[in-house]
Design a protein around this nucleic acid. Structure first.
Lengths: 205, 205
DNA sequence: TGACAATGTTACCGATCGGTACGTATACAT
DNA sequence: ATGTATACGTACCGATCGGTAACATTGTCA
């Protein structure tokens, strides 16, 4: 059956980068499935099937399903801070505008029909046991978020920077969760406005 | 092998209550395991084993594991509104104090070492597909919460009651999630204070 | 005491879980 | 052409998944 071969060659055309051909495809498919339907809900068989590869290919690139999930989250982490830093870079030296820009963007994201919450938050809910590879990545991401928000709250001139930073984190997490719970028209749509009210009430007078 | 029998009889001694003996035990065990470790993470075998019964007993009282999960959530729902109504009843005619009491209590709960978040929220994360029995219960609970918060925001005299109600919901959900993510000393500890700041900033001046 | 209904138990089902042993195809250097 | 390393596929593993058929035990009322 040479037909399959031809298709493969057509997709993976030319003199592409040699080493990690299947690994990227596997991670891409896993990313999509893990995010949309949950990590525990997806078996490795479905991943390799949709990726057009076989199981041994997966286990040569990733030590286990748990580690594949951790890789998915590390990718998620990179993209997360990309979005965050874009909002920061748009308003240099103005932390309040930076937060506002980020939250406006979060609010919009939560209103998209395919929105499924924060991959980090979801993973932590799916794996409550401490030390699980997926949870480790998730917790690190959240610690970093808390740190940044508290620093920005201080730079804004908040009366109690740690409290304001934590308050913003609560609202952000609430937006992630209620975005997937309520869908369009849910409470997450008002996250930017509510956060702005909270900030205004938390600044030194 | 009559030894097993004897042990069973010793455990299940005397003239115990006849009608729904096993069903309650099953639901109690399932409640604990589902909440602490997640619904997808727990198999029916473990439930019946810990409950000291067998699988057919489970399936005569519950049509499926999904329905058992829904029953767990309905139980959770009853206890949830019990707690909520207690806070409300403690401050008749004073919605702001009611919210404050409820959030103080939520903040305390999130700091307990075995806190694992809101069972409703967790279930919705575990089952993103619409129409799933567990998700149906969860969504109804959250809709009711939104409704109550908006009404209370209106009774408080908020400039924009729907926005304040949704803002409070965001903070509550954020407290549930970050409670299990950060544990002791996490952002959830400040939910009552932050909510109070938000309320103060949202009232008609 | 005997009949009936409810509840409990043993043993099993096919499907799917994450993971692997082992043979095969391909690319490149010599 | 041939050795060699690497990537890939076939076929399979034991364990566990949710769920069930068939049988034994129990309490209740006639």
């Amino acid at each position: 059956m040479p037909t399959d071969k031809k298709i493969e060659l057509t997709i993976n055309d030319g003199h592409a980068a040699a080493p990690p051909k299947a690994a990227k495809k596997i991670l891409d498919v896993a990313y999509d499935l893990f995010y949309r339907r949950g990590i525990r809900a997806i078996g490795v068989d479905e991943i390799v099937k949709r990726a057009g590869v076989t199981k041994p290919s997966l286990y040569r690139s990733f030590p286990s399903k748990d580690e594949l999930a951790a890789s998915y989250l590390r990718q998620y982490d990179r993209e997360y801070w990309e979005r965050f830093d874009e909002a920061v870079a748009a308003h240099p030296g103005n932390p309040r505008a930076q937060i506002s820009a980020f939250l406006t963007r979060v609010g919009k994201r939560t209103q998209r029909p395919d929105y499924r919450g924060c991959g980090m938050t979801n993973a932590a809910v799916e794996y409550p046991e401490h030390g699980h590879p997926a949870r480790v990545v998730s917790e690190a991401n959240k610690q970093e978020l808390r740190h940044r928000l508290r620093e920005m709250a201080a730079a804004m001139g908040a009366q109690d920077p740690d409290t304001l930073g934590d308050g913003l984190l609560l609202m952000i997490e609430g937006a992630y969760i209620s975005g997937q719970l309520f869908g369009l028209g849910g409470p997450a749509a008002s996250v930017a406005r509510n956060a702005d009210l909270l900030i205004e009430a938390s600044l030194k007078k």
